[in-house]
């Protein structure tokens, strides 16, 4: 079985040892994309969020084998212009404390900014319900994300 992904714009063939394993493991251990975090491994916390074909998904719930040909974007692959804006907004509004949840939220923010139909239909608090943050109490993240919209 051959599985090839496009990760952050680069084609990468998944070695046999990572087929049948989680996308999260492949990204972190094989590609060294440690911006993708594991908080729970159960789809509860959103720290491992990546974009698959532009849609946010928990990389801890996806097996590499089913992703052949897909386009994956991690925080490392978000455009520099976006990251500059996002990190400036985080600093301005105090949206980062320990920062462990932040990469997942950055990916969500990029998706929000791209603005699909679900995005306009729902409030940020609903859209980000799957991203836990134990530190901030959310208020300042909401302010930063609102400023980015």
């Amino acid at each position: 079985m051959q599985v090839t992904l496009r990760v952050n714009g680069k084609l990468s063939e998944v070695p046999p040892s990572f087929i049948g394993r989680r996308l999260l493991d492949y990204l972190r251990a094989e590609l060294g994309l440690t911006g993708v975090k594991e908080g729970c491994g159960e789809g509860d916390c959103g720290a491992c969020t990546v974009l698959v074909e532009g849609q946010p998904m928990c990389s801890c719930l996806l097996l590499t084998g089913v992703l052949d040909g897909r386009e994956i974007t991690t925080i490392e692959g978000l455009p520099e212009t976006f990251l500059a804006q996002f990190s400036a907004a985080c600093a301005e509004y105090g949206a980062v404390q320990c920062g462990y949840c932040t990469p997942g939220i950055a990916v969500m923010a990029a998706w929000l900014q791209a603005g699909g139909s679900e995005v306009s239909a729902q409030p940020i608090t609903k859209l980000l319900e799957g991203n836990l943050c134990r530190c901030t109490g959310y208020q300042q993240i909401i302010e930063a994300l609102s400023a980015l919209q």
Binding site: R28, A29, E30, T34, G35, V36, K37, E38, T74, I75, E76, L83, F86, S87, A88, C90, A91, A95, V96, C98, G99, Y100, T102, P103, A106
Partner: peptide
């Protein structure tokens, strides 16, 4: 790491430092 680095996913927590 300070805030700007954390926001870019550049902070390194223990699990990020474990080599293959």
């Amino acid at each position: 790491a300070g805030v700007p680095d954390r926001a870019r996913g550049l902070a390194r927590y223990t699990a990020d430092l474990i080599p293959p």
